[in-house]
């Protein structure tokens, strides 16, 4: 009985090892079938998956207008205080005060790319971009202001 399990152990051990070697041998002879993304040489043709998220950006149209109302929904949605919105009050031509954003501060170094801010935004002002080469020499350069200088809110966005 002991001898039977002993021989069976040896047999299963050897066959499972050979199975593993067969797998790696297959990979060795088929190494041209690269399954990983190749990176630095093919920046122009890089094919990133749709769900890949690199950083938060604010979309601006050709008139330098964005859709951010300064409602701070994204700031509230953010789990680790990545976004800080500084608001100001614009005076409309009718003489009324209207809330608008002064600075949309985005701390890339704190961001986990969870996408909650984009989902929380009622007007679709921000989105996730696919850029990923974020390395800089100074940490302060990771703190970004997303609204472009001189931009204003698009007409009709409330």
């Amino acid at each position: 009985m002991f001898l039977k399990t002993y021989i069976k152990d040896i047999y299963t051990g050897v066959t499972s090892l050979l199975k593993g070697m067969r797998r790696t041998g297959y990979y060795f002879t088929h190494h041209k079938e690269i399954i990983t993304q190749q990176y630095p040489d093919n920046r122009a043709t890089l094919n990133l998956p749709e769900r890949f998220k690199g950083e938060v950006v604010m979309t601006h149209d050709t008139n330098n207008e964005h859709a951010c109302t300064g409602c701070t929904a994204c700031e509230l949605a953010c789990p680790n205080a990545t976004i800080k919105i500084i608001t100001k009050f614009d005076i409309t031509p009718e003489g009324k005060k209207k809330k608008a954003i002064d600075k949309f501060v985005y701390h890339l170094e704190l961001c986990t790319m969870c996408n909650l801010c984009v989902e929380a935004c009622p007007t679709g002002a921000i989105k996730m971009d696919q850029t990923f080469e974020h390395s800089v020499f100074d940490r302060s350069r990771l703190t970004k202001i997303l609204n472009q200088p001189g931009s204003k809110i698009r007409e009709g966005v409330e």
Binding site: T24, Y27, F28, H30, H31, E33, I34, T36, Q38
Partner: peptide
């Protein structure tokens, strides 16, 4: 090289 090819790397 052998290790890379067995792991389908370059």
């Amino acid at each position: 090289k052998v290790s890379a090819w067995m792991q389908i790397r370059l």
